[in-house]
């Protein structure tokens, strides 16, 4: 069990001593039970921090934002930034460091183990609450306990947990400066890639129709891209301006810019967007599942990323975010690579 007060005390102490300039963590939001990202700079606010089954967010996203902001100001980071990280989040931080987005010493990882559980999936929870909204959610061993106007509702975690957590192989932030909770790596709540396997068993050779249906539903709000710590490119194929514009950029360059993807949310454009994103995440996605959670129209985006992840795992034994010094999937090769074209 994780004692929330320990996390708060750590944050308070480190901020007070100036060991970190900010602690990025979770606090209670203003809509029901849901946690929201918190950026604590004042030690007195450390008690705002929470840890509960609604701490969905992969906060490493904000490390990217911070880095971009510092670069914009041309400032050195100074003291490191503290961040509360679950297993998947910590692996994202590792990938970002593999890609030299920031240095190890710029980040102080306050790891939190998901132990035997993970985060709740609101879509799975809703039917259990009979239309009531939960005002609070806590971990209680293998159960989640929700407070509603009807009273307390205790649910086995695995019934309402997000698929990403059920299938998580490493619910522990191996890369950390400090960690709360036990390492329960190897707990098996569901087999790895279970949702992907379910989908593949069901599809019945009708994959094109399945994906056409979902690609047609995408509204191109780009929440999946925006919420993803790996989608940090300054130039994204979907944006109206796909290269940095400066005062030196000529009118002709701007007028003749390549538009890889039109803004219309039509099938061809949506496919190009979502498939491009899936390809760019191969070997980088740590399955935090935030893209699928954020999607307002329930496009099963995670299946695409999982597919890439499984390919990399089966073909090359590759585990994204395993170690900072480790190879990246697409920038390394094996002497015993299964494909002869590369040897």
């Amino acid at each position: 069990m994780i004692n929330l007060q320990d996390i708060r005390d750590t944050a308070r102490d480190m901020l007070a001593k100036g060991e970190v300039r900010t602690v990025i963590g979770y606090r209670r939001g203003t809509r029901g039970m849901l946690a929201e990202p918190a950026f604590i700079t004042d030690p007195a606010q450390a008690d705002d921090l929470v840890w509960n089954p609604t701490c969905f967010h992969n906060l490493s996203l904000y490390l990217v934002e911070d880095r971009k902001f510092l670069a914009h100001l041309r400032q050195n980071p100074g003291a490191p930034i503290g961040i509360v990280a679950k297993g998947c989040d910590a692996r994202s931080i590792v990938v970002l460091m593999q890609e030299h987005y920031f240095k190890r010493e710029d980040v102080y990882i306050i790891g939190v183990s998901c132990e035997g559980t993970g985060v709740v999936d609101e879509r799975k929870l809703a039917p259990h609450l009979n239309g009531f909204q939960a005002s609070d959610a806590v971990f209680d061993g293998d159960d989640f306990v929700f407070t509603t106007a009807q009273g307390e509702k205790r649910l086995p975690a695995r019934e309402v947990m997000a698929d990403r957590c059920l299938e998580c192989r490493i619910p522990f932030p191996k890369e950390h400066n400090l960690v709360f909770g036990e390492d329960k790596t190897g707990r098996q709540l569901a087999e790895p890639f279970a949702a992907l396997k379910r989908f593949e068993a069901q599809e019945g050779g009708d994959r094109w129709n399945f994906w056409s249906h979902h690609f047609d539903r995408c509204i191109r709000c780009f929440a999946c891209r925006s919420v993803c710590p790996m989608c940090y490119c300054d130039e994204c194929v979907v944006d109206s301006i796909t290269f940095p514009v400066t005062s030196e950029t000529s009118a002709e360059e701007k007028a003749n810019r390549i538009r890889w993807i039109e803004r219309s949310a039509t099938r061809s454009e949506n496919i190009t967007y979502l498939m491009t994103r899936a390809m760019h995440l191969a070997g980088r996605c740590t399955d935090c599942g935030e893209c699928e959670r954020a999607c307002p129209v329930n496009v099963p985006i995670r299946l695409l990323n999982n597919k890439m992840e499984r390919e990399a795992r089966e073909k090359f034994g590759f585990e994204p975010g395993a170690s900072i010094g480790g190879p990246s999937l697409v920038a390394s090769f094996l002497d015993n690579d299964p494909g002869d074209f590369i040897r």
Binding site: L61, I219, R220, C221, F222, A223, R225, S226, V227, S240, R259, E262, R263, S264, A294, P296
Partner: peptide, 19 residues
């Protein structure tokens, strides 16, 4: 995070682009 959920789901947001 700068996504479009709030405005795309909104019943009165009406900003558009022309291409």
């Amino acid at each position: 995070i700068g996504c479009g959920i709030c405005t795309f789901l909104c019943p009165t947001c009406h900003c558009f682009d022309i291409n």
